[in-house]
Design a protein around this nucleic acid. Structure first.
Length: 316
DNA sequence: CTAGCATGATCAC
DNA sequence: TGATCCTGCTAGC
């Protein structure tokens, strides 16, 4: 159950363990079989993410597009070379639960027999990746990818992605700071065009991509914004602060592999940082706000749960 | 064991 | 707005 930071981690993982190698692509479950055949045996050139979507570019100029949706997840496994190639200590499951199995001393003997509904399986000489339960898993041509990307609003992790590209020795189009300013300009322009509540706007991937239910609740608290405030009613200065807070929070999420939004001073002593001290309002309904005595509120908005502090985030 | 829920999004009405 | 996609974890019998 990933927000954008998980997808960017996943892109790095795919790039690290499969990048530049010929891979076998199959669909043990069958539903992806026809598309899998189009990229089977080709070289996975690179992987990248925008918002909550993963794209893998193959040597025959086709792309694998994956959207994990609510319960999609990847499992990775492989030999020592495979594990060592990961920049984040794989193999691990990418999603909500990035379980880090203790280093098994067993020798690698190839991918396991598929268990359950494995939509897609990618196998290299050194390891494998299994995908289950995605909302989307399909092979696209270049212009179809461009159309998908164009539908997505600016991704606060664009600069981190560019940094990742630079570390890989690839050319990037602009300096990270310039990319962030461009993203902010697009974000601001899109918010200015709608009076929908900011809490709804943040979940709209056409307005900003990669933000999910946790980041929206947490960033609105941190910015002391009333969730119901119309998007076009927020000052340019506040939109800027909102954007750069998302950038900071999500970049931290990429580094940590989990979402932690609290400042040191607001954490409850004696409790572990994860998960008890990780959030300000998410899933803390009825409990005391970390900064004031008010009870954290919960409401269902457009089918998703919204958490906020009615005092800290009072309309001003 | 089962029911309910989850960091998502689309489609029909 | 509600049904659906379709998986895994967990709280509660």
């Amino acid at each position: 159950m990933p927000e954008g930071h998980s997808l960017h981690r996943l892109a790095r993982q795919m790039d690290d363990v499969f990048g530049g190698q010929a891979v076998a692509v199959s669909s043990p479950q069958g539903r992806f079989a026809l598309d899998a055949a189009r990229i089977d045996g080709h070289v996975l050139e690179s992987a990248f993410a925008k918002g909550k979507q993963l794209f893998c570019h193959f040597s025959n100029d086709l792309y694998l597009r994956v959207h994990l949706g609510l319960y999609g997840a990847f499992d990775f496994g492989g030999d020592e070379y495979f594990r060592g190639a990961s920049s984040i200590g794989a193999p691990r499951r990418v999603g909500e639960r990035e379980s880090s199995q203790s280093a098994a001393p067993e020798p690698y003997t190839g991918p396991p027999e598929p268990v359950g509904a494995v939509r897609a399986r990618v196998v290299s000489e050194h390891g494998w990746a299994d995908l289950r339960g995605p909302t989307a898993c399909e092979v696209l041509e270049h212009d179809q990818v461009q159309r998908q990307l164009a539908k997505l609003g600016p991704d606060p992790l664009v600069a981190a992605a560019a940094h990742f590209d630079a570390a890989k020795g690839r050319a990037i189009q602009a300096e990270p700071q310039a990319l962030l300013e461009a993203g902010l300009a697009e974000f601001r322009a899109k918010l200015a065009r709608t009076r929908t509540p900011i809490c709804t706007a943040l979940m709209n991937q056409e307005l900003v991509s990669g933000v999910g239910n946790i980041y929206r609740a947490e960033v609105l608290f941190r910015q002391r914004l009333d969730p119901q405030r119309p998007a076009n009613d927020i000052s340019a200065r506040k939109v800027r602060a909102l954007w750069f807070d998302l950038v900071a929070l999500m970049e931290d999420g990429v580094r940590q592999g989990k979402i932690i939004t609290t400042e040191e001073a607001d954490r409850e002593p004696g409790l572990p940082l994860w998960p008890d001290n990780a959030y300000y309002v998410y899933q803390r309904q009825g409990r005391q706000c970390r900064r004031c005595a008010a009870q954290v509120s919960l409401a269902e908005v457009a089918g998703r749960k919204l958490y906020w502090c009615p005092r800290c985030q009072r309309r001003r």
